[in-house]
Computed example of a mutant assay.
Amino acid sequence: MTETKTVMTNAAWRAEGARRFGTDDIMQWKFRCVSCGTESSPADFEKVNADPRRAPHECIGRHLKPVMHIDGNSKPCNWTAGGMFRLSSVVEIEGIEGKPTLAFPFADYIGGEPA
């Protein structure tokens, strides 16, 4: 099985976020966890006293206690884009000074409305 990965420049990623969410305010953008499908924004992270800069990279479940689910299929989870197991739907963003960053894909919104 061949793994596919989306690679974007930082400028292209920011432009796509602004297009999808109708604003360039990243605090309003939503990201979809590749493991459980939970959608959350940096503003959601702030509401649970978590660093909003982590929203593109971590499921909000990492910041809610407890995160252990008996059935193993509950939401939200504790997945991270840069963890040991990398799923192909993770986006690689070309970072500053050539250091790439892994992020969850955007939630399905177009022009600020759910798609």
Rank of each mutant, 00 (worst) to 15 (best):
P42T: 00
G61H: 02
E3F: 12
W29I: 01
D71M: 14
A18D: 11
R54E: 13
N49V: 08
I70K: 13
E46P: 02
H63T: 03
I60S: 00
K30V: 05
D71T: 15
C33S: 06
T101I: 15
A15M: 11
R19M: 08
S41M: 07
L87R: 07
E97K: 10
I110Y: 06
C33T: 02
T6S: 07
K30R: 15
E39H: 08
S41E: 04
R86Y: 04
R62W: 07
D24L: 06
M68W: 12
G17K: 02
M1N: 13
R20A: 05
D24R: 09
E16N: 09
D44A: 08
G112F: 05
A103G: 03
V91C: 01
V67G: 11
H69W: 10
I93T: 04
V34R: 06
D44W: 02
E39M: 09
I110M: 05
E97M: 09
M8N: 05
F45E: 01
I93C: 08
R19K: 15
Q28A: 14
G82N: 14
T6F: 04
K5A: 09
L87Q: 06
Y109D: 04
W79E: 02
T80S: 11
I60G: 00
M8E: 13
P52Q: 09
C77Y: 00
G111I: 04
I60Y: 00
E113D: 05
A115M: 04
C36N: 12
D108F: 01
T101M: 13
I96K: 11
N10L: 15
F85E: 00
F106I: 05
H57Q: 14
E16W: 04
G22M: 10
A50D: 04
A12V: 13
W13M: 12
A12Q: 15
M1V: 15
P42Q: 01
V91I: 10
S40A: 15
P76W: 00
N49S: 14
A11L: 13
G61K: 03
C77W: 00
N78A: 11
N10I: 11
C77L: 01
I70A: 15
I93D: 02
D108T: 03
A115V: 03
V7K: 09
R14C: 13
E16S: 13
W79L: 01
